[in-house]
């Protein structure tokens, strides 16, 4: 399904002063497209993602998916993969994957079957009865992806999904999830501050600037997906990387200090 973001602005009021987190964002996504939002800390990319999923209403403008305006969260339209996994620690893995289906009133039999399928897809089929505390961070993140995919969402929203993982885990997890998403022809919006992640995953990288968050530039990555890990070692990759690096540097340009907005990501 097509998604368009029309003139979206978000302002926060904190302790009396107003902060412009996002200003006049205009974007559209095709079906099956993988878009990465890349930007320095505090550029409002996570805020934008939160708005896309309906967890927050923009101060101005609107987000349209298909032919309806996004006002409330609906996991069948857009499902989240949160940065900190946020699995429910008291439920086992199978029930965590099926939690959205349960909320939607899907029967137990069907729910379990669907959850099991997704766990198999993620290579976690033998972990269904375990609890999140027994799994490593990378495994928990795969469960969180499965939980979102279980809703069969039109759009998948990923908020720095690998931020808390080590480099090796990120790479191998990236490759396996990338394959799954490409095979499913899943439309994805990924928020990241990692150049490598954005280039390796996305069809299109949107570079954002900070305070207020604006779209600075767009870069198409033409390499067909799913991409082999070797892509990272190729000349194309290096070129794209340096191109994006310069853009990002410019985006941070006038203000390179750490941004106080980052912790208030919703």
């Amino acid at each position: 399904m097509r998604m368009s973001i029309n003139d979206v602005s978000v302002t926060f009021t904190r302790a009396g002063s107003t902060v412009e987190a996002l200003k006049d964002i205009n974007l559209s996504l095709h079906e099956g497209e993988f878009v990465a939002l890349l930007g320095p800390s505090g550029c409002g990319k996570s805020t934008l993602l939160t708005c896309l999923g309906g967890l927050m209403t923009p101060t101005k403008g609107e987000i349209v998916v298909g032919d309806s305006v996004v006002e409330n969260p609906d996991p069948r339209r857009a499902a989240f993969v949160f940065q900190d996994y946020s699995l429910l620690p008291w439920k086992n893995i199978l029930d965590n994957v099926g939690v959205g289906l349960r909320f939607a009133g899907v029967g137990k039999q069907e729910r379990r079957q669907r959850s099991q399928e997704l766990l198999e897809m993620m290579g976690l089929s033998q972990w269904g009865e375990s609890h999140p505390g027994q799994l490593s961070g990378g495994m928990q993140q795969r469960v969180a992806v499965a939980r979102a995919l279980a809703m069969d969402p039109s759009i998948l929203l990923m908020d720095e999904p690998f931020g808390a993982l080590d480099e090796q885990t990120r790479r191998s997890l990236g490759e396996s999830i990338s394959t799954v998403l490409t095979q499913n022809k899943q439309t994805v919006v990924l928020v990241t501050h990692s150049l490598d992640e954005a280039i390796y995953w996305a069809d299109r990288v949107i570079v954002m600037s900070a305070r207020p968050g604006r779209v600075m530039a767009e870069v198409q990555i033409r390499q067909p997906r799913p991409r082999p890990l070797e892509f990272i070692a190729q000349e194309d990759f290096a070129q794209l990387r340096s191109q994006l690096f310069l853009m990002l540097n410019e985006a941070m340009g006038h203000d390179q200090q750490a941004n106080p907005l980052e912790p208030q990501r919703a």
């Binding site: 999923g53 967890l55 409330n72 969260p73 609906d74 996991p75 499902a79 989240f80 949160f82 900190d84 946020s86 429910l88 939690v99 959205g100 909320f103 939607a104 939980r147 809703m151």
Partner: peptide, 13 residues
């Protein structure tokens, strides 16, 4: 809060 967010994002009543 993060678990409440999951409930909202996955449309729990």
């Amino acid at each position: 809060d993060r678990h409440m967010k999951v409930a909202r994002a996955f449309k729990a009543s």
